[in-house]
Design a protein around this nucleic acid. Structure first.
Length: 575
DNA sequence: TGACCAAGCGCC
DNA sequence: AAAGGGCGCTTGGTCA
């Protein structure tokens, strides 16, 4: 059973029961308190909730204590379907999908909010939309309507029509043997998970964070001045350079380095590391600490941590490969150094489960390469391959990464020859994906997430223009670039399929473990916050979820997807 | 002043 | 240890 929901902000909402195929199973009903009604029906009927957008509807429900197990997110599903059907990037809001059904002019998607608008310093504090205490409760509870529906269109009718059509389209895709229906369900559940994690937050100790910063940078400085340690380094850099220089300015820094006699062409750390000069260690240390201060210093702490929780915003499906993105707080780029500040509550632990070597395992499973699957049946895949490379595990790793990412420089090409003869199916799989990209065709993940098509501009470049030497060169480069992209896409996107399935299965399993909550998800790693005495149970649930995800994606493959699991009091202690 | 770009670096 | 693809975010710097 399904229930379609339209939230009418401040005035409850409207519901209508549906059959699984999307046809109505009862009359529409107006309810004064949407959260209460959702909570009641969730217990009584456990339906799949159908709504325009989880990101729009669910935060207010979660804030009101109404959590649900399953949903059908029309916007996310529309994105998956239109991508699969070769119309990648079409507006995917309910209004857009409805307009296409009706043959009406299709509205552009509403801007995705404050993500880019808030890039500046001052706006940062205002961008903490997710349930933060304080003055923006109003906007959190009553978001602007970005459904894209034209004036006068009935949102519930539109929702029903679009949902029913999406069910048909998913069935048609399934009939062709693709698992997009499963991905749509996982993506929808992923969106539920994302909002719940944003609401619950990652336990974060401002005190531990401050101590860490003070230890590395010196005490918190007055606004507008550098921390002591950083200022000290800046002074020594000027002294060593013999000229005034702001090390925060790549232009000035490059000029100073060259004046000092260093033949560098940029100020990138990896390039600087290749030179020997008294300035180099100072500059490298400055860069590292300046980044820490600028990106994850006290300003970040003030802006993103409230009541002992870091509450980032996640953007489900925000990356073309299906990885999530964030829209504030930089949750997916927390430096390892800073993770020490993520501290579990008293009596609680973090269970940090990290998928080991997912991408080569995905390659083994997706290509059905028997030899590689054998290597991936054990614990350390690269070690299993080492005998092929004179016992050198590191070379085995280089070879495999080169195969998945299209690297051709260095001795990668030579190593690839070995892989190609030994694992023809696996290498053939990624080579075919690369060829498809170079030809301007599309590729898909194991569950059917589809890469963007080649643009008209790309086709023009690749056709070689008038045929001058430079144009021919540009054509080859553009083709190879896209080949590398599609080569990587089939792996990265399939890994994202697997990880999202794992996440939502684990979410379901955790409902049976008292006090356990998902608090963080990062590409191939999940963090659960739970009572210490439940940690073993949670670890087992994560292992079970990984195995179940493998079965759902790859059936009876012999490839294993082991998790490296740590039970810790501080996130920084995991690995 | 705000919008936008580039350089650079954090994560996977 | 790095390479490769994918991102977000910061600062500096330019332009209107």
């Amino acid at each position: 059973m399904r229930v379609a929901v339209v939230a009418e902000w401040g005035e409850g909402g409207r519901l209508r029961p549906l059959f699984d195929d999307g046809s109505p199973a009862g009359e529409a009903e107006q309810v004064p308190d949407l959260a209460a009604e959702v909570a009641r029906r969730e217990v009584a009927e456990a339906p799949r909730w159908v709504w325009a957008s989880t990101a729009q509807v669910y935060p207010a429900l979660v804030a009101a204590g109404a959590r649900v197990a399953r949903c059908h997110d029309v916007t996310l599903t529309e994105a998956l379907l239109s991508g699969f059907e070769g119309r990648w990037g079409e507006p995917r809001s309910l209004g857009a999908a409805w307009a296409r059904l009706r043959g009406l002019p299709v509205p552009a998607d509403a801007s995705t909010g404050t993500a880019s608008a808030g890039a500046g310093h001052g706006a940062r504090h205002g961008a903490t939309g997710h349930g933060g205490a304080g003055g923006d409760t109003q906007s959190a509870l009553f978001p602007t309507d970005d459904s894209g529906l034209p004036e006068g269109a009935d949102p519930l009718d539109a929702l029903l029509a679009v949902h029913e059509r999406q069910r048909e389209r998913l069935r048609a895709v399934a009939a062709d043997g693709h698992g997009l229906w499963l991905l749509a369900a996982a993506e929808s559940a992923g969106a539920l998970t994302a909002e719940e994690m944003s609401h619950d937050g990652l336990p974060w100790s401002p005190r531990a964070h401050d101590e860490l910063l003070t230890e590395l940078l010196g005490p918190r400085p007055p606004a507008g001045t550098r921390p002591r340690r950083l200022q000290d380094l800046a002074d020594r850099i000027e002294q060593a350079a013999g000229t005034p220089v702001n090390p925060d300015s790549p232009v000035q820094l490059l000029r100073a380095l060259r004046t000092a006699g260093l033949p560098v062409t940029s100020t990138r750390s990896w390039e600087l590391r290749g030179h020997d000069h008294p300035l180099i260690p100072l500059v490298l240390e400055y860069k590292e600490l300046a980044r820490l201060w600028g990106a994850h210093g006290w300003t970040w702490l003030d802006a993103w941590v409230r009541d002992g929780r870091f509450r980032p915003g996640y953007v489900v499906g925000g990356v073309v490969s299906g990885r999530w993105a964030t829209n504030g707080g930089g949750a997916l780029q927390i430096p390892k150094m800073i993770r020490r500040a993520a501290v579990a509550d008293p009596g609680m632990r973090f269970v940090v489960a990290d998928a080991a070597q997912v991408e080569p395992r995905i390659l083994a499973a997706i290509s059905g390469d028997v030899g590689l699957a054998e290597a991936a049946a054990g614990g350390d895949l690269y070690a299993g391959l080492a005998p092929l490379f004179g016992g050198d595990r590191a070379r085995a790793k280089i070879a495999l990464l080169a195969a998945m990412y299209g690297q051709t420089s260095g001795d990668a090409a030579q190593l690839l020859v070995t892989l190609r003869t030994r694992f023809p199916a696996a290498i053939g799989y990624v080579d075919a994906a690369a060829q498809a990209g170079e030809d301007g065709r599309i590729v898909r993940s194991v569950l059917g997430r589809t890469c963007p098509p080649a643009s008209a501009g790309w086709r023009e470049t690749v056709s070689g223009g008038a045929g001058g030497a430079e144009e021919v060169q540009a054509a080859g480069r553009a083709a190879r670039d896209r080949g590398r992209f599609t080569r990587n896409f089939v792996i990265q996107a399939s890994a994202a399929d697997w990880a999202e399935i794992l996440l939502v299965i684990l979410r379901r399993r955790l409902t049976g473990i008292d006090g356990a909550r998902l608090v963080f998800f990062q590409h191939d790693e999940v963090v659960v916050h739970c009572p210490a005495e439940r940690a073993e149970e949670v670890s087992a649930a994560a292992d079970a979820a990984a195995a179940e995800a493998r079965r759902l994606l790859f059936g009876d493959t012999s490839v294993r997807f082991p998790l490296t699991t740590a039970v810790v009091e501080s996130y920084g202690d995991a690995k």
